[in-house]
């Protein structure tokens, strides 16, 4: 559905995206793709290229079976796009605006009435469809923008930060709507909010500093980090003594230790492989006659992964 090969966009010396590639097929595991990255990572730039708003400096991209550079009009007929902050014409009424947009998609009069009715219902515009857009709140405008993107029943829907600036209730409603839309359309969603992507998306692409850092389902990404998951243990005993004892257990990698002010040692144990070594740690402590007050698995979340790779990226860049 979306194929991106070595896409590069340079504005000045530093901004833009560099050699971005990914490939998304319809319905492999679901249809909501999360495009995740910190602010300024190149999310909007990538989306602008995929929606044919800006051409790339180099590389190719195919959306809904058409090349975004050579068959731009065909692509634009098959996509819906909600830019960041949902720009709209404030002087128009919502219904007027939707009718205007439907006309641009060459719909006949009857089709337009039907389409506006359909999206009005879907995005709950009923109460304010006849009010000027300039009078609407941020959340309402977001819904008008989303309704606009849905008018022509697009194959692919691009949403750039759809929940930014909304209140918690509106965020929850919007997410519910996006989940619904994922059943029918391929939704390509950009966000800098991790748990949003983790909750909603079936496929995640992480981007930072204009480069793709990871690409896979949230479960796959989590699996990639579970190999280096940690065990936290607090043991009553000397720091060096406990550390060398724990290091003796098979399957234990690096161990970091620190002394707590009350005489306990806090060990952070890295496990090689995916086996659970908590039992071995417990047996060791029991054999030695030490006391144990905490033994817990530090669950690796997508957040850790995200922080880790973006931090690595920053180190590599020497920032």
């Amino acid at each position: 559905m979306i194929q991106v090969n070595n896409l590069t966009k340079r504005y000045g010396p530093s901004r833009g995206i560099e050699d971005v590639s990914f490939n998304i097929d319809r319905g492999e595991t679901g249809n909501i793709i999360g495009f995740l990255g910190p602010n300024g990572a190149g999310k909007s730039t990538t989306i602008r290229i995929l929606t044919c708003y800006q051409p790339a400096t180099s590389g190719t991209a195919t959306v809904a079976g058409h090349n975004v550079f050579t068959e731009s009009l065909q692509v634009r007929r098959k996509i819906g796009y909600l830019p960041e902050n949902a720009p709209l014409y404030p002087e128009m009424r919502a219904r007027e605006y939707l009718d205007f947009r439907a006309k641009l998609h060459r719909m006949s009069r009857n089709d337009r009435i039907a389409a506006v009715g359909r999206v009005t219902e879907k995005c709950w515009l009923g109460d304010f469809i006849d009010r000027p857009i300039g009078q609407l709140s941020k959340g309402m405008r977001q819904r008008v923008g989303l309704a606009d993107a849905l008018l022509h029943d697009p194959e692919v829907l691009f949403l750039d930060e759809p929940t930014i600036g909304l209140d918690p209730n509106q965020i929850r409603e919007t997410r519910k709507l996006i989940r619904e839309l994922g059943q029918r359309h391929v939704v390509f969603l950009s966000s800098h909010i991790l748990h949003e992507v983790e909750q909603l998306c079936t496929h995640t692409i992480i981007i930072a500093n204009g480069r793709v850092l990871a690409d896979g389902s949230p479960a796959e990404l989590r699996e990639r980090i579970s190999g280096s998951s940690r065990l936290i243990a607090e043991i009553k005993g000397g720091v060096d003594e406990t550390r060398s004892a724990v290091q003796g257990i098979s399957g234990v990698g690096a161990v970091e230790s620190g002394e707590e002010p009350d005489g306990w040692s806090r060990l952070s144990i890295e496990a090689n492989g995916t086996g659970d070594i908590r039992e071995e740690v417990f047996r060791l402590v029991a054999d030695k006659g030490w006391a144990l007050r905490e033994l817990r698995h530090e669950v690796a979340s997508l957040e850790d992964f995200f922080i880790k790779i973006t931090a690595e990226q920053r180190q590599d860049a020497g920032v």
């Binding site: 929606t51 708003y53 634009r76 796009y81 720009p87 709209l88 641009l104 923008g145």
Partner: peptide
């Protein structure tokens, strides 16, 4: 200024 150029130019309009 308002960014509506983005929605306009991503509709099938040249």
């Amino acid at each position: 200024r308002s960014g509506t150029i983005e929605t306009l130019m991503t509709a099938p309009v040249n």
